[in-house]
Design a protein around this nucleic acid. Structure first.
Lengths: 118, 118
DNA sequence: GCGATACTAAAGCTCTTGCTTATCTATCCG
DNA sequence: CGGATAGATAAGCAAGAGCTTTAGTATCGC
């Protein structure tokens, strides 16, 4: 499986951890420093920074350092890309169900005329 | 971090692998047997079955065995749940940007009247 | 019945993840 | 300057993910 979809790998992998999802949930409310991100998380600071690194290499989060504080924010584009993959699959599934419904309706009405023909 | 969101953990984890995403992409086109799922994948059959197991425990895929063939299909509900989490975060981010825009517009017009007041 | 088909189960191996503690480097401020 | 703050880096470790090969167990069709 050519890892053609590597960006999606990273995004979904990043979202697969509850701590990282909590960090994303915090960041959608607005940018935050590393300490602010760490605050509600019962974990060592290096652990939080490692989660942050995963979020950054996935592209879901960007950050910049100013003085001694690093400010993190959401990158909505990466979030949208992951969303888009799922949405497209769901839509494809629904389109297929629609076609199947049409087909079954056709079969049913043909069945009815068959009954008359008999 | 209480693993309160465990179902999402499993769904995103499942989607983080390109082989598994390829299997999902196949299944949105309609149900398939294990062998049909394996066909395009250059991997041993047990490996494919392990991927399938991940997809099943995540709830993204369901399957039933009839005779000697197991037929797999998508569970759109699980797909929709993962989609929903992302969508809600993106929407929250956008609502925040809107509020910020309003606020900045307010500041700007107040700034203009300040200039007049000066 | 018997060979081929379609999966299933188990063991083992390597690489990655998700933490930890300990140590170190910058910046800020009184 | 010097102590407190904010973050970075490194090493180490237990558990899990993602394969493999090997060896099964049911069905199906002649």
């Amino acid at each position: 499986m050519l890892n053609y979809g590597a960006p999606l790998d990273l995004a979904f992998q990043a979202l697969a951890d509850p701590t990282r999802r909590a960090m994303v949930e915090r960041l959608v409310k607005g940018p935050a420093s590393v300490s602010e991100l760490k605050a509600p998380i019962p974990m060592s600071l290096p652990a939080v920074m490692q989660h942050l690194a995963v979020l950054e290499t996935s592209g879901l989060v960007v950050s910049q350092k100013s003085g001694r504080v690093r400010t993190c924010s959401i990158n909505p584009a990466a979030l949208a890309e992951a969303e888009r993959w799922i949405t497209e699959r769901r839509l494809e599934w629904e389109r297929r169900l629609d076609r199947l419904g049409e087909y079954l309706k056709t079969l049913e009405s043909e069945g009815k005329s068959d009954e008359h023909d008999r």
